[in-house]
Design a protein around this nucleic acid. Sequence first.
DNA 1: ATATTAATTGAACGGTGTTCAGTAAATGAT
DNA 2: ATCATTTACTGAACACCGTTCAATTAATAT
Lengths: 218, 218
Amino acid sequence: MDIDKPRSRRTGRIRQAIIKSAVEIIHHEGFAALSIRRIADAIDYSPASIYEYFSNKEAIIAAVCEEGFTRLTTALTDYPPQIDSRMAVRECGVQYIRFAQANPDYFLLMFSMAATQVYSNPEESLEHELRRSPAFMVIHAHIQVLVDEGSVFVTPQYGSFQIALSAWQMVHGIAMLTLTMQRNAPIDYSVIRMTLDAWQRGFSYTEHEPQKNASDFQ
Amino acid sequence: MDIDKPRSRRTGRIRQAIIKSAVEIIHHEGFAALSIRRIADAIDYSPASIYEYFSNKEAIIAAVCEEGFTRLTTALTDYPPQIDSRMAVRECGVQYIRFAQANPDYFLLMFSMAATQVYSNPEESLEHELRRSPAFMVIHAHIQVLVDEGSVFVTPQYGSFQIALSAWQMVHGIAMLTLTMQRNAPIDYSVIRMTLDAWQRGFSYTEHEPQKNASDFQ
DNA sequence: ATATTAATTGAACGGTGTTCAGTAAATGAT
DNA sequence: ATCATTTACTGAACACCGTTCAATTAATAT
């Protein structure tokens, strides 16, 4: 069970090879073309061997998704950093959408499998859970800066966590709909930036009229 | 080829029975359990017979999705109408999210299959296309009221169409993430209403500072 | 009653995920 | 270095899948 012995290093490499070939098959031939036999072919093993390294196909897909989330996390920070915090959160959102565009099968897989798999533990609060999601925490950190510098307003019920969640929901909706319903339409990032600016304006201090009571309906 | 002759009425009924049993299988046993043989079983036909009514499995799924979109459209208008236009658009969004919660397999299927199928025609503009989508037009009509009464501001580049699209993206992101990443977390609709209020505030007239140029980045 | 058309099916093909007994290879102990 | 034991690997099989097609039955038109 030593993780650094040659044996586990070797099995680790094979696990990685399985994940890598799965990613490549999905990328080049689509998710539908992904099969155990196809993977076994690619890494020169028999189909049965795959089950030495993953308990089933679902586990392989889960590993691919995990890989995808770490790629997403790095993509979120992959842009020139020397901009003001308002633009930083906006560009972070743009990066999210860019990632979805650049890796459509990946992105759709990640957020479809999330429905099948148990990313959620009912015992644990949503906030607790999301705080362990690196991709979300990148967004949250950006929002926290806005809150700290007083660029957005918070209330006891609606703090930086809720604002960050809302930001995620906004960019996720844009990403999802451009990938599904508007798949063949060209993407105008300047329009997307206007949308994200409008979103941000909704949380900014302005002389807005008193908020309608959100519990008018049940 | 007469549509009203007994023969085509019968084939029409069988088509409907196929769709209906597909919907029920998805609902009760999940999308993974949907198979031609399973459907054939349910309607007391042989698997081969199904192909007399649908060219393949994908066509059946497409029909199920179509059914889903009409259900969604009616759900969007299914709430007390005697409220002011600002609340109307908000409650319309809430209905969207409620539909997703009430029909998770349906909803996820509709917007995952959208990636596989061709809802989009590259020849046609996005706006033209969406204008033929009833569900979107329900949202658009609500936004148009806000624009007409001057509750939200429009610019030449960002008109009622773009605002409606943004509204769709916002509620779609909320719906999708609650179904996938936060699947087991309880939903607080009062928080969601605050989010939708904030979204709307972003498009309302206020003394907000001049908008940052959206083309600072390419 | 007969000819024609449509509807239905059983059997098959090639694919899938997965299991398992059996074989080969690598490891640990002597 | 030899042997015993654990680990890795595989071929064959099972039960499923979507789909096709020749053959058969039912419905319609003449």
